[in-house]
């Protein structure tokens, strides 16, 4: 028999093996805990913030462009300069606030497309041209129009197509899209004639309270979406068109639209407008139609760059 001190080796070895096993088990459970911890963390590595920043840029610069257009500067170079300065100011402010969070968010390569803002601001004036002609053309060879809003009241004439005011887009090929504003039993109503229609569809999106704010490019009436109102519906995409008012003396109100004059062939019928801001007559002023910028958003885990075009109120 061995010495008393040599006993229990088996139990000792087994105990050791079990101890090691339990340590391994603990480590295993530890990695599970780590993974569960990983699972409970947010999974987005900044993608949402990048899109949020891009939205901030589109919204901010959109406001800036429209604000400068509304300011009715006298020359194209002045409105360009204001927008360029405004953009760099906007960029500095926003970039600084993102830098504090360890994010490089930046706007660069600004380029601007010139346009003309056509408007009438007297709500009690008829939709005639500068000299009082009722059937007239606002612009010819137009490819892009945005923020075309008319606010109208007191229509006269109850038969669209015969004696009611209409705004029409007429393509080079002769396709015509028209929106009529007419009167029916004392109420203002709207009719739309798409290129393929033989006659106008009467009383769309009613009832309409006066003054009626009709956003032709966005397709809303008094802020409510109007499914029947689709800007230039039927005129093939990319085709140029003329913008006309017919029977402008059968309606009164205000209007605003911006046309893109950076595209070749687009011209505003200047003889129909005053060239300085006027409280009583329709007028045209220099404007920016659209802006293009590169948006950069860089964090430790994410690099994102996109070229963004800013032209608010374009047809969808």
């Amino acid at each position: 028999m061995a010495d008393v001190r040599d006993r229990a080796q088996l139990i000792l070895i087994t105990g050791l093996i079990l101890a090691v096993s339990f340590v391994v088990l603990t480590l295993l459970l530890n990695t599970v805990i780590y993974t569960e911890n990983l699972a409970s963390r947010g999974v987005d590595t900044g993608g949402s913030e990048a899109i949020e920043y891009q939205t901030v840029v589109v919204h901010g610069l959109g406001e800036l462009v429209d604000g400068e257009n509304d300011a009715e500067h006298q020359s194209q170079s002045e409105v360009r300069e204001r927008v360029e300065n405004g953009t760099s100011g906007f960029n500095e402010t926003v970039t600084a606030s993102y830098l504090e969070r360890g994010v490089v968010a930046d706007v660069s390569n600004l380029s601007l497309d010139d346009g003309r803002l056509l408007r009438q601001t007297d709500p009690s004036r008829a939709f005639t041209n500068r000299t009082g002609t009722a059937n007239w053309t606002l612009a010819t060879g137009v490819e892009d129009t945005r923020s075309f809003v008319v606010t109208v009241s007191n229509p006269s004439g109850s038969t669209p197509g015969t004696d009611a005011f209409n705004v029409s887009l007429v393509s080079l090929g002769g396709d015509r899209w028209s929106v009529y504003v007419y009167e029916d039993g004392g109420a203002l109503e709207l009719a739309v004639q798409n290129v393929s229609d033989g006659s106008p569809t009467l009383d769309v999106c009613g009832p309409i309270s006066e003054p009626a704010r009709i956003d032709l490019t966005r397709g809303t009436v008094n802020g409510e979406p109007c499914g029947a109102l689709v800007f230039g519906n039927g005129i093939s995409p990319g085709a140029v068109y003329d913008i006309e008012f017919r029977r402008g003396d059968h309606i009164q109100g205000t209007y605003n639209l911006t046309v893109n004059t950076a595209t070749a062939g687009t011209s505003v019928e200047s003889q129909n407008f005053e060239t300085v801001a006027s409280g009583t007559s329709p007028y045209e002023v220099p404007a920016i139609y659209s802006a293009h910028v590169d948006v950069h958003y860089v964090t430790a885990d994410l690099r994102y760059r996109a070229e963004v075009r800013i032209a608010r109120g374009e047809p969808p």
Partner: peptide, 25 residues
């Protein structure tokens, strides 16, 4: 799931007009 979420995130960025999208996970 983390990798799937990152791919979906990159997909959204590409859909938002991204020309250069690099996302580390």
């Amino acid at each position: 799931q983390r990798l799937a979420a990152s791919i979906e995130s990159a997909d959204r960025l590409a859909g938002a007009g991204g020309e250069d999208v690099v996302l580390d996970v």
